[in-house]
Structure formats: structure tokens, C-alpha cells
Simulated assay, not measured.
Amino acid sequence: MKNFITPAELSANLDNYILLDVRGYGDYKLSHIPGAFVIDMERDLSGPVCEHGGRHPLPDMDGFAKTLEVYGITKDSQIVVYDSWIFLCGRLWWMLKYLGISNVKVLAGGIERWVREGHPLTMEPTKVPTESSTLEYKINTSMTMTRDEVFLASKSQSHIIVDARAPERYSGAVEDTFDGMTGHVPTAINHFFGHLFTQEGPRNDEELRKEFKDILDSQSKAEQNNVAKKPIVSYCGSGVTACLTMLAMSEIGIESALYVGSSSDWVTYEGFPLTTGEEHI
């Protein structure tokens, strides 16, 4: 697996990794994997909510980097991130990549699989290093797209737009009570993050290639015609679970930018366009 590590693999090499538990302080205090540090979604992975930007805008990245420095993280660190399974680990995986940290793995099956396979937990907080590290990071701006960029991409059909929400929210079959976005960004296709994983980890490569056949076929056709592949941008409700669809896509070599504000940002603009039903590339 390209982006994942199993509990057995992690247990055998625990000292080689810096572990980040993204379940938040409450769950961390109850129990966590020995050696793990805590990362909190609201405090560390999100910034202040404003008129635009969605429910989980990015935090100040200097501040996020300083939190990582306290835990001894550098751009060359080997990091394993985990949650219960599967919800917030994708956002942390993506944000570390966004800073240019390349050696990031997600614990396949999360702490739930870790426990099922008989590995230990602790309540003892991990001691932070006596001296902070220096994280020389460089933000990869190509990994994000703004609302205006997504709007233009939708109008011009210059990108493949992936909606990672549940099918009924995407299609508009049910009223979206989260953000008021009943339906989807025009031209967007649906690849629900919940269909891409089992209790053990991501679905195997064959299953993922079948799930993303529409994108792979589009890219293959572009290569055959000697034209550029359409770039991809993904969104969800607030830029969290879209990272899980992006994580699964990355397993089979499909890379995507993130519309961080997602539908919770889209609906804050007057006259935002929506489409219902199902669309295809």
C-alpha cells in the first residue's frame, strides 16, 4: 500500500515513526497508541470561521508548523497518522503533504484495527522532546483551489470535479441539512469516501481502479489523443472527508487538488449554481 501501514508493520517498527493521533484530546486521554502525540481537528487543523471559507478553513500554517516542531517533526520525519477509522486522518495526511512532508503513512484500520489485532494502548501522555525541531516547510499551492477557481472550472469543464459526499447528498435526493447544498457543483461526479474503505484499510487496487474507472478512462483517452489530462479537484462538506477520497485515489496514482471550503463555502456566495441528479465524465 502506497499511503498506508498495517498495525503489524507499525508495531514492528514503532521507534522509527512519529505517531499523530487525530481523534482529539478527549479520546487521546482515555487511551492511545504508545508514543503518539495528539492533534486536534478544531484547534490544529482548522482556522477561524468567517463569512466565506467554509466550516473548516485551513489554520495559520505557521502555527500548525510550530505545533509539529514541538513534537520533533522535520520535513524528513517518518510520520504515521491515525484516527478511530475512518474520518479525520485524511485531513491530517493531506495537510502534512501540503507542507511538503513526504514520508506520511495512515494506519490502516485505525486504532480500532490496532486493538483488534492485540496491540497495546496507554493512558500515559507521550513526553515531548526537550528541544523543538525546525520544520523548514514549503506550501504546495497546487494542492488547493479556491471557490472562484472551482466556479470557473465548472463553467469551462477544464477540470474533473469530484464530490466526495454521500450519493443522496450529491444527487439532491435528500435535503442537505449540513450546509444547505442540496445537489452538487455543476459537472461534478460522485465518489463517496465511504465506499472506498473496509474495516481493514483501503479497498485493494483492483477495486479502487474499478471505482475510479471513469477518471482512469478519461486520463487514458487523453494520453491516446496526445492531449493534456484534465486536472482534478475534490470537495465534500467542509474539506475534511474529501481528503479521504483523495487518499484512496492516490493509492492508484490519481492526484487531486482540494477545494478546502467545499460545499459549506460554496453556499455562502449569492446565486451559487447547483445541479441535481447524477453526472458522468
Rank of each mutant, 00 (worst) to 15 (best):
F4I: 09
I5Y: 04
P7Y: 01
E9Y: 02
L10K: 14
D15S: 15
N16V: 00
N16W: 00
V22A: 11
R23A: 04
G26W: 00
D27Y: 10
Y28F: 14
K29I: 13
K29W: 04
F37L: 07
I39W: 03
D40H: 04
E42C: 03
R43N: 12
L45N: 01
V49N: 03
V49A: 05
R55W: 06
H56S: 10
E69V: 08
V70D: 10
Y71S: 09
G72R: 11
G72D: 10
Q78F: 03
V81F: 09
F87T: 06
L88T: 15
L88F: 13
C89K: 11
G90H: 06
R91D: 00
L92N: 10
W93I: 11
W94M: 08
M95Q: 13
L96D: 03
K97C: 05
Y98R: 09
Y98N: 05
G100D: 02
I101N: 01
N103W: 02
N103P: 04
K105T: 09
G109P: 04
I111F: 04
V115W: 01
E117S: 08
E117I: 08
H119K: 13
H119L: 14
P120D: 14
T126N: 12
K127P: 00
K127L: 08
K127Y: 00
K127I: 00
L135K: 03
E136P: 02
N140Y: 02
M143D: 03
M145P: 00
T146C: 03
V150R: 02
V150C: 02
K155L: 14
S158A: 15
I160C: 09
V162K: 12
R165L: 11
P167H: 12
R169S: 02
S171V: 10
G172P: 07
A173L: 10
E175R: 12
M181K: 02
M181F: 01
G183S: 13
H184W: 11
V185G: 05
T187C: 02
A188I: 08
A188C: 13
A188D: 09
A188F: 10
H191D: 07
F192D: 07
H195M: 10
L196R: 05
L196G: 03
F197L: 08
G201P: 02
R203G: 06
R203Y: 01
R203W: 01
N204R: 09
D205T: 14
F212N: 05
D214G: 01
Q219S: 04
K221A: 15
A222N: 06
Q224G: 06
Q224P: 00
N225Q: 14
N226K: 14
A228N: 14
K230P: 00
V233I: 12
V233Y: 02
T241I: 12
M246S: 11
A248M: 13
E255F: 08
S256F: 08
S263R: 03
D265Q: 08
T268N: 01
T276Y: 01
E279M: 14
E279Q: 15
H280Q: 12
